[in-house]
Simulated scan of single mutants.
Amino acid sequence: MSERARWYVVHTYSGYENKVKANIEKTVENRNLESLIHDIQVPMEEVIEEKDGKQKVSLKKKFPGYVLIKMLMTDESWYVVRNTRGVTGFVGPGSKPVPLTDEEIETMGVVEVPVDIDLEVGESVVVISGPLREFVAIIQEISIEKRKIKALIDMFGRETLAELDFNQVEKLV
């Protein structure tokens, strides 16, 4: 068992890829398994379709029926993923999941963006997108793995805790 999180491929029922991703993310959050399961991706690609003489760009799943998961393989993480509704199993011989090589990850288009944020707990930020746009928030918690912050926003005279993506906030200057 290596101590490094590796990418694994999980087979799902066709059309369940995003549901599986959401269900695993919810389980990870509820059971505090962020240290075991780091990232879940459904790789997409832009496809240009022609309809009625017009070109339309749409996103299509690169690998229908598959979800990529970066995780530390333990009995617990294996169990959580394997028993998620919509998952039919890990890709690998028998029931033994085989991690992807770095070359395979690259050719599959899995993008691991290094997280470089200049935010600190207690700092004020302004929300730049979404329904809370233009609200000022005070950071309470930063989750590098999920690329999210939890921040208090003063709404209607009450402080409300909101979860925001890194790209939804900007430092107050």
Results as ranks from 00 to 15, higher is better:
residue 6 R to Q: 07
residue 8 Y to A: 04
residue 8 Y to G: 04
residue 12 T to S: 02
residue 13 Y to F: 10
residue 13 Y to T: 10
residue 14 S to L: 11
residue 15 G to V: 05
residue 15 G to S: 03
residue 16 Y to L: 11
residue 18 N to G: 00
residue 20 V to N: 02
residue 23 N to P: 03
residue 23 N to T: 10
residue 24 I to R: 01
residue 24 I to F: 01
residue 24 I to S: 02
residue 27 T to F: 13
residue 31 R to L: 15
residue 33 L to V: 10
residue 33 L to C: 12
residue 37 I to T: 07
residue 37 I to A: 04
residue 43 P to T: 08
residue 46 E to C: 03
residue 47 V to I: 14
residue 47 V to D: 07
residue 49 E to V: 15
residue 51 K to F: 14
residue 51 K to T: 08
residue 52 D to K: 08
residue 52 D to Y: 14
residue 52 D to I: 09
residue 55 Q to G: 06
residue 55 Q to M: 12
residue 61 K to S: 12
residue 62 K to H: 12
residue 62 K to P: 11
residue 63 F to D: 01
residue 63 F to H: 11
residue 66 Y to W: 03
residue 67 V to I: 04
residue 68 L to E: 06
residue 68 L to W: 08
residue 70 K to S: 03
residue 71 M to F: 13
residue 71 M to S: 15
residue 71 M to I: 15
residue 72 L to K: 15
residue 74 T to K: 15
residue 74 T to C: 15
residue 75 D to S: 13
residue 75 D to P: 08
residue 77 S to M: 11
residue 78 W to C: 02
residue 78 W to D: 04
residue 78 W to H: 07
residue 80 V to P: 07
residue 81 V to Y: 02
residue 82 R to E: 06
residue 84 T to M: 10
residue 86 G to V: 01
residue 87 V to E: 00
residue 89 G to F: 04
residue 91 V to I: 12
residue 91 V to Q: 02
residue 91 V to C: 04
residue 93 P to T: 10
residue 94 G to M: 14
residue 96 K to R: 13
residue 99 P to T: 08
residue 99 P to G: 09
residue 105 I to R: 11
residue 105 I to D: 01
residue 106 E to F: 11
residue 109 G to D: 03
residue 111 V to S: 10
residue 111 V to K: 14
residue 112 E to I: 13
residue 112 E to Q: 13
residue 114 P to F: 04
residue 114 P to Q: 11
residue 119 L to Q: 03
residue 120 E to M: 08
residue 122 G to R: 08
residue 122 G to P: 07
residue 125 V to W: 01
residue 128 I to K: 02
residue 128 I to D: 01
residue 130 G to L: 10
residue 131 P to T: 07
residue 131 P to H: 06
residue 131 P to N: 09
residue 132 L to T: 07
residue 132 L to V: 05
residue 132 L to H: 12
residue 134 E to W: 05
residue 135 F to Y: 15
residue 137 A to H: 00
residue 137 A to L: 02
residue 139 I to N: 13
residue 141 E to Y: 15
residue 143 S to Y: 03
residue 143 S to N: 14
residue 144 I to E: 00
residue 147 R to G: 10
residue 152 L to A: 11
residue 152 L to D: 09
residue 152 L to S: 10
residue 153 I to L: 14
residue 153 I to K: 11
residue 156 F to T: 06
residue 159 E to A: 10
residue 160 T to L: 14
residue 161 L to R: 11
residue 163 E to M: 10
residue 163 E to W: 05
residue 165 D to Q: 06
residue 166 F to V: 12
residue 166 F to T: 06
residue 168 Q to K: 14
residue 171 K to P: 01
residue 171 K to T: 04
residue 172 L to C: 12
residue 172 L to N: 06
residue 172 L to A: 11
